[in-house]
């Protein structure tokens, strides 16, 4: 079992393996631009569909109370469409088999991929958050800068488990269906925390600090679990 942080062939450190994987994924996305484009349009459609469910501009208080939840549900759905693709891309030309044979730690591959997915979903958020504020006529009543902590933490919590479970589903039938079935129940505490924290910022009624702590704890615990267990997943027979 390869040890984390152990330099494999003298020259390359663990961080450089992670960086190499991250670079490869970013380059692939830059050339193809399929995942970000798809996610962005999908999230935009979700925003429009939710606006059919209720009139956000006529009821600003309700809009403030529920749009935190809508934003995260939209991002969750959008992220899931991209996460499945992120591993399917490695299956073409047996790249995954080559990665399995490579003398690099398996968790570096996983971290690189998770960081790349994190960058993609964050990119979508940067575009989507202003669109959301405009379409839903939102003026946050709490400390808006806290969103700069909540959004990345929430995104990382979704992406870390999403990337892991997408890899878990690589060898299964109904791969596209499997990811949401597994990810949603596991991510429920994180979803609860990110939605509550965002709602607290938007309504300004409570302090979101408790939920930020929950989110942080979730992210730390599951990042650790994913890194420890990924080796077993990659080398499954």
């Amino acid at each position: 079992m390869p040890r984390i942080g152990f330099p494999y062939d003298g020259g390359m450190s663990y961080a450089r393996y992670v960086l190499a994987h991250l670079q490869k994924d970013l380059r692939l996305e830059w050339r193809g631009r399929d995942s970000i484009g798809g996610m962005l349009f999908f999230a935009l459609l979700v925003v429009v569909v939710f606006a059919m469910a209720f009139d956000p501009t006529a009821y600003p208080t309700i809009a403030r109370q529920i749009s935190g939840g809508l934003l995260w549900v939209g991002l969750l759905f959008a992220a899931m469409t991209a996460l499945n693709q992120s591993w399917a891309r490695e299956q073409r030309n047996q790249v995954l088999d080559a990665l399995r044979l490579a003398p690099a730690p398996a968790s570096a591959l996983f971290l690189g991929k998770a960081l790349a997915n994190f960058a993609f979903v964050t990119g979508v958020e940067i575009v989507l958050a202003p669109v959301f504020a405009v379409f839903y006529n939102l003026h946050p009543l709490g400390q808006a800068w806290l969103l700069l902590i909540i959004l990345p933490l929430g995104t990382w919590s979704l992406v870390i488990n999403g990337t892991f479970f997408a890899a878990l589903g690589l060898r299964s039938r109904n791969r596209e269906l499997l990811l949401p079935l597994v990810l949603c129940p596991i991510a429920m505490p994180a979803l609860l925390a990110m939605i509550q924290a965002t709602t607290d910022v938007l309504t300004g009624e409570f302090s979101p600090s408790l939920w930020i702590k929950v989110l942080f704890a979730y992210a730390v615990v599951f990042t650790t679990a994913c890194i420890l267990l990924f080796d077993a997943i990659l080398h499954a027979d």
């Binding site: 878990l168 589903g169 060898r171 299964s172 039938r173 109904n174 269906l177 499997l178 079935l181 597994v182 499954a236 027979d237």
Partner: peptide
């Protein structure tokens, strides 16, 4: 998941 995942 047990039902969906195939094989070994």
């Amino acid at each position: 998941v047990r039902r969906f995942s195939a094989g070994g």
